[in-house]
Design a protein around this nucleic acid. Structure first.
Length: 557
RNA sequence: GCGGAUAUGGUGAAGUGGUUAUCAUCUGAGGUUUCCAACCUUAUGUCGUGGGUUCGACUCCCGCUAUCCGCACCA
């Protein structure tokens, strides 16, 4: 690629300036793990904060935080244990580990779909040779999961668990508390930023694929039967680059894309717009943003429609955000697995009057008569026609026929008024890979030019995310200029959410250059005139312009 | 996981089977009325890791780890 050299210069600069560094470098490094250094740490937290602010501004969204350590059952219910697992077996001769389903590919149409027991049985039956050494000596099949597994608690009392592969499950399992918090009114959303973990086979491309990564997700719960109306007018003059599931490219406004059914759901479209705004706020180049719809066979196990937001940078087009319509998949799965109700109530406009007229059992008689079968008899009796004459034979699931006599049953006639119903909310989930976004913020902000024949590097970071807000520079460290400067620096340090740096080393031009490399938007220089009238010069990074201003009028004080 | 390439101060590079390993830049101290990487003096800091061959290994060989590029898998 043409900008490989640029990528290397950028990575070198980020390492040198303490933005991004390989983690545990002291011990040779660790694949897929990165440090955010003294400059990068705040960059990350400012992006996180901007993200939180962006979504809480919707008004019906709350921030939560759930543990990264997650019990086995939760991720089993969500489908991750199954979907993220491979079954492994090890050769007793050469220790080579193989995927059990791969070994059996020629003996079963889809071994990937087998459960562990069936797979073990098939392996024992087929006894394939080890592809490495030819021996036939396989260990018991073990699950090899892409999730980091751990034990919660000590010894035999510990229960199995995982480091979460996504933050989403914490929001789903918190649904009852969220529903109560919002006074049982949909729609509402829950957001959290935090770490996710995936034990990647092969982490690559720097920040793009990590084993521990920062993610930010919102679960937005909606009533599928009442579509929220969103205002798209803001984006009407913006043609978004939309790639549909067939690979066709459409340049349309969001309103147009929704009206022709390309974007299937209003809320998905609205979040696409909000995501677009967010990325541009961070300083992402609007020319390097595109949306791509997942093809049906590409969709994750939980999604019914999904749009990726891809950003273009040194690694090509990279998926950085996924906006998925997860339907009721997750809440339904957790309802089934936990036995708890995860539903919302929808009131009918008009109460429904339901006339019930039919048969049911007379518990006092039928109970003792049918004992364990009474429950099933009740279900069968309630299906009987009004005209039924007793006694009548009913057939149980196991094939036995029982005779139901008139004394066992009674006629039910009643009027039930139903004012509403319970349903499982649907979920629209925008999921952000913070590290990937952060990388592209840096990539897009990185500017190479020349100054006096020398290469000149700069991070043109938006002040929303710039890790250092201001640098205070005494032109000379004498005659009292150093005192004014350090006093100003101390004053800045006292201001919450303002990070100031003091730099008195080297020529003034060199100090400006250093500040430019870590993307400081403003440099304040204390010079001779400051001694006389308490003014300083304020220099703007992007155009190098300077204005003289009284210290007390500095915009950030 | 497979195949290929690579690993030298913070960064970027050069180099050698032989004893104090080189250069630039960066960083620190001092000097210099220094507003866009000036200059002078000076200092700190390197052969990824483990084993082998050898009188001697940063150099040659092997393993490991990491990085980059394909493939596979995936987000």
């Amino acid at each position: 690629m043409a900008d490989d050299a640029r990528l290397e210069r950028l990575q070198g600069m980020l390492r040198q300036r303490g933005v991004l560094l390989p983690a545990f470098d002291l011990y040779g490094g660790a694949k897929g793990l990165y440090d955010f250094g003294p400059v990068g740490g705040r960059l990350r937290s400012k992006i996180n904060q901007a993200w939180l602010n962006h979504w809480t501004s919707l008004g019906n969204v709350v921030e939560i935080s759930s543990p990264t350590v997650t019990p086995y059952e939760v991720l089993e219910a969500s489908g991750h244990v199954g979907e993220f697992s491979d079954f492994m077996t090890q050769c007793g001769e050469c220790d080579e580990a193989s995927r059990a389903d791969t070994l059996l590919e020629s003996h079963h149409p889809n071994p990937d779909s087998l459960n562990r027991g069936d797979l073990q049985a098939l392996l024992d039956d087929v006894s394939p040779k080890c592809p490495a050494c030819g021996a036939v000596s396989w260990s018991q099949i073990e699950t090899q999961n892409l999730m980091f597994s751990t034990t919660i608690g000590a010894g035999s009392s510990g229960r199995p668990g995982f480091m979460r592969p996504e933050t989403a499950q914490g929001m789903f399992t918190m649904f009852p508390a969220l529903y109560r918090h919002f006074r049982e009114q949909l729609p509402f959303g829950a957001i959290q930023v935090g770490k996710g973990y995936r034990n990647e086979i092969s982490p690559r491309q720097g920040m793009i694929r990590l084993r521990e990564f920062n993610m930010a997700e919102m679960e937005y719960f909606i009533d599928p039967s009442s579509q929220e109306t969103h205002d798209f007018s803001k984006w009407d003059s913006t043609a978004m680059e939309l790639h549909d599931g067939e690979g066709e490219v459409h340049n349309l406004s969001l309103t147009q894309a929704i009206s022709i059914g390309l974007i299937r759901h209003q809320t998905v479209g609205y979040f696409m717009g909000k995501t677009y705004d967010f990325l541009l706020e961070l300083g992402i180049d609007s020319q390097k943003v595109r949306f791509r719809q997942h093809a049906p066979d590409e969709m994750a196990h939980y999604a019914s429609d999904c749009w990726d937001v891809e950003l273009h940078g040194s690694y090509g087009w990279i998926e950085c955000v996924g906006i998925a319509h997860r339907g009721c998949y997750d809440l339904e799965a957790h309802e089934k697995a936990s036995g708890r109700t995860l539903r919302a109530r929808r009131e009918f406009l008009e109460p429904k009057i339901v006339e019930i007229d039919g048969w049911t059992i007379d518990g006092g008689v039928a109970g003792p008569a049918f004992r364990g079968d009474a429950g099933q008899v009740k279900e069968l009796v309630e299906l009987l026609d009004l005209e039924t004459e007793f006694p009548v034979d009913v057939v149980l699931n196991d094939g036995r026929a029982l005779s139901v006599e008139s004394q066992h049953v009674k006629r039910v006639q009643k009027t039930v008024k139903e004012t509403g119903e319970w349903f499982i909310p649907h979920v629209v989930e925008p999921a952000f890979g913070i590290d990937r976004i952060l990388w592209h913020v840096l990539d897009h902000a990185y500017d190479e030019s020349e100054k006096g024949g020398e290469p000149y590097r700069m991070l043109k970071l938006s002040s929303l995310v710039a890790p250092i807000d201001v640098v205070i520079l005494p032109l000379f460290e004498k005659n009292g200029m150093d005192e004014i400067a350090s006093e100003l620096h101390k004053r800045c340090c006292m201001i919450p959410n303002l990070v100031s740096m003091y730099d008195a080393s080297g020529s003034i031009g060199k100090r400006y250059a250093r500040a430019d490399e870590i993307g400081v938007p403003l440099c304040i220089t204390v010079d001779h005139q400051s001694l006389e009238d308490n003014t300083v010069t304020m220099r703007t990074r992007d155009d190098g312009s300077q204005v003289r201003i009284s210290i007390d009028e500095l915009p950030f004080l």
